[in-house]
Amino acid sequence: MILCAGESLIDMVPDNGSFRPLAGGSVYNTAIALGRLGEPVAYLWPISRDPFGDVLLRPLAEAAVNTDLCPRTDRLTTLALVTLTGGEARYSFYDEGSAGRMLAPEDLPPLPGHIEALFAGGISLVPDPCGAAIEALIARDGERLPVMLDPNIRPFFINDADAYRARLSRLIARSDIVKLSGDDLEWLHPDVTPEDAARQVLSQGPRLVLQTGGAAGARAHWAGDVVSAPAIRTTVADTIGAGDTFNAGVLASLRRQGVLSKEGLATITADQIAAALTLGAQAAAITVSRPGANPPWAHEMPGANVLSEQQS
């Protein structure tokens, strides 16, 4: 089972001159996408007892995401006001004192033995105490479990850039897979090309650095030659949840191929990486083709009938 640890929130999405509340959050979206793809997945993040908490729990239950590690709290749910410019999403956060933000390292539960991989990232890495809690989780369990990290950097959310760069440096060094968009790479290493920036991240210790570029597709930097996968052509409604769904597709593929482990990632091949990038791109293409963070279900994926026959 893959554990996703990080923020859930309510996206207030533009809708005919007003805003419609939708469940979201970078790590939350990845958990939902994994569940919809049929992967065993658990979620770790405090859930408010306010009405928005029920909005967040419903899609988790529908996608069969295990929420046993989610404490309930009377603190309020984080809100993200979404604006769209040319289909690209921009966010303003209402997060002070929220349910998730106040997660502290001492609140972390021991992980059950059936957890086989850890995914973390998003804005949950930025503020304390929750940022320190996620860092403590990775420090505690990352030696045993493979870790995938997607910082999904939002510069306007970061008050102390130097402190956050230092935290990311520590987290990257403990991670096995790091996914970074072009914007992420530019923020981390503003004076070099994205490819050189990705190689610099790789030199910090991960087995794989996944570089995503929207319509430009995805590239994997690792011990061998760069592996590339093209983006899937589709009509874009918006990009909300695209990268989160890509992450889920990558993790699902690696798990299905039997390489989502410390040992498996140490001996991974170019073909296995290409398959993971392709599944990630296929899943993300479906998400961007419809409004909001609405990842595909397993039956909507290319080759779904073949996959179901193989698994039966």
Rank of each mutant, 00 (worst) to 15 (best):
G205S: 06
A215H: 12
A248D: 03
R233M: 11
R256M: 13
G249F: 06
T245D: 09
T245N: 03
H221W: 13
Q200A: 14
D244K: 09
A229Q: 13
A248Y: 01
L254N: 04
L254T: 10
G241V: 00
V192R: 12
R207P: 02
Q211W: 11
A173R: 13
V201K: 07
L185T: 09
R199T: 08
D183H: 14
R170Q: 14
T212R: 06
L188E: 05
D184A: 02
G205T: 04
P190F: 03
S261A: 04
G205W: 06
I240L: 14
P194F: 03
P194C: 06
H221T: 10
S203Q: 14
V178Q: 00
G258Y: 09
I172Q: 00
G214L: 04
T239S: 14
S169A: 15
D176W: 00
S181A: 12
L202G: 07
G241E: 01
S175H: 06
L208N: 01
D238I: 02
G224I: 06
S261K: 03
L188A: 05
H221R: 11
L251W: 03
G249S: 11
T234F: 10
D225M: 11
R256P: 03
D238G: 05
A223E: 12
V209L: 08
H221A: 09
V178K: 02
A198N: 01
K179P: 08
E195H: 09
V259K: 08
A248H: 03
G243K: 05
A173V: 10
D191E: 14
R199L: 14
S175K: 00
T193R: 09
S253I: 02
P194N: 07
Q257T: 08
V250N: 03
A220H: 08
S261Y: 02
V209K: 00
L254I: 08
W187D: 02
L251F: 11
Q200T: 13
V227A: 05
G241H: 04
S203I: 12
L171H: 03
T239E: 12
V236D: 08
D238S: 07
L208S: 01
F246G: 00
V192M: 10
I177N: 00
I172F: 09
S203D: 15
A216K: 15
A231K: 06
L188S: 02
A218Y: 01
G217C: 14
G217W: 12
L251T: 05
R199C: 12
D238A: 05
Q204R: 15
G205H: 05
P230S: 14
A252V: 07
Q200Y: 10
V250H: 04
R219P: 06
Q204A: 15
L188R: 05
V209G: 01
N247L: 08
A220D: 09
L185E: 04
T193S: 15
A248N: 04
R233G: 11
E195M: 13
I240P: 00
D191P: 07
T245H: 06
L202A: 13
T239I: 15
P190D: 05
V226E: 13
D176C: 04
G224T: 07
T193M: 07
Q257W: 09
I177Q: 00
P190L: 04
G205C: 07
A237W: 05
Q200G: 14
A223C: 10
G224V: 11
V178N: 00
T234G: 07
G182E: 15
R199Q: 15
A242S: 14
L185M: 11
S253W: 03
G214R: 11
G224E: 08
D238L: 03
F246M: 11
W187F: 13
Q211K: 13
L185K: 02
